[in-house]
Design a protein around this nucleic acid. Structure first.
Length: 215
DNA sequence: AACGCTATCAACCGCTCTCGC
DNA sequence: AGCGAGAGCGGTTGATAGCGT
């Protein structure tokens, strides 16, 4: 266990390449998950949390860096629609992508769609709020939506429509209170992760066949 | 060229969850 | 069953690169 003094001496901020190397070696030695041990034994003066984050987001094998592909973007939009801000769950569907990366990508590239346009009219510090999630409720003025955005929205809309049709017969046990399945978040955990993946990679009817045994 | 503004992303914070005792 | 410690998650912050004026 770490004492108070040790905690206050913890190093913070950006990681150096040599620190990455030490952490990598330590994870190989002590195993992924023993972050308190790794933090102490590495001598990096980094908290277990910090070590875990660095490993998970940058040093772990098979991390994919760079631009998101169109497929990945599409999947993020779809999954976010269903799961909300459950970044780790969404990232789990994108091989090589981390929750932090997906979250940043959503907040910068995808979520900005909903607040663009307003910036054309309101150029103030308020418009550049550091709280991107708060922009979610803002409306897109029709005249500022580009063709690309229209296309992206139409893909999403068609998918939502498909899912809504599909949900006509897919109601949660709470449907007695007229709560539609997809809007009822507490029901989602009933669906196994793998089944959710299947639901996204197949058509509605196929997904229903996959899900049914679990209900 | 200089300055201010904006976008991006790595990292931290605080809360919740899980597990062992 | 209750408690504490550690791990995990989502929200937020801060540094900085890039762009526009």
């Amino acid at each position: 266990m770490m004492d108070k003094e040790f905690k206050t001496r913890m190093k913070r901020g950006f990681w150096k390449p040599e620190e990455d190397l030490i952490l990598k070696n330590c994870v190989e030695t002590h195993g992924e998950g023993n972050w308190a041990t790794i933090s102490e034994k590495s001598g990096l003066m980094r908290s277990g949390k910090s070590c875990r984050l660095r490993w998970k987001n940058y040093l772990r094998p098979n991390i994919k860096r760079g631009m998101m592909s169109e497929d990945e973007k599409d999947l993020i939009i779809r999954l976010h629609k269903l799961l909300g801000n459950r970044w780790s769950l969404i990232a789990g569907r994108l091989p090589g992508r981390t929750d932090n990366e997906v979250k940043n990508f959503w907040n910068t590239h995808l979520n900005k769609r909903s607040c663009r346009g307003k910036k054309k009219h309101v150029k103030s510090k308020e418009a550049n709020s550091r709280s991107p999630l708060g922009k979610e409720s803002q409306e897109i003025p029709a005249e500022t939506v580009s063709n690309k955005e229209v296309a992206a929205n139409s893909v999403l809309d068609s998918w939502i429509e498909e899912m809504q049709d599909f949900n006509c017969s897919l109601l949660s046990p709470l449907s007695m209170n007229n709560v539609p399945f997809l809007e009822d978040e507490p029901f989602i955990p009933i669906l196994d992760d793998i089944v959710l993946l299947e639901a996204f990679t197949s058509t509605g009817k196929e997904a229903w066949n996959e899900i049914q045994p679990f209900l």
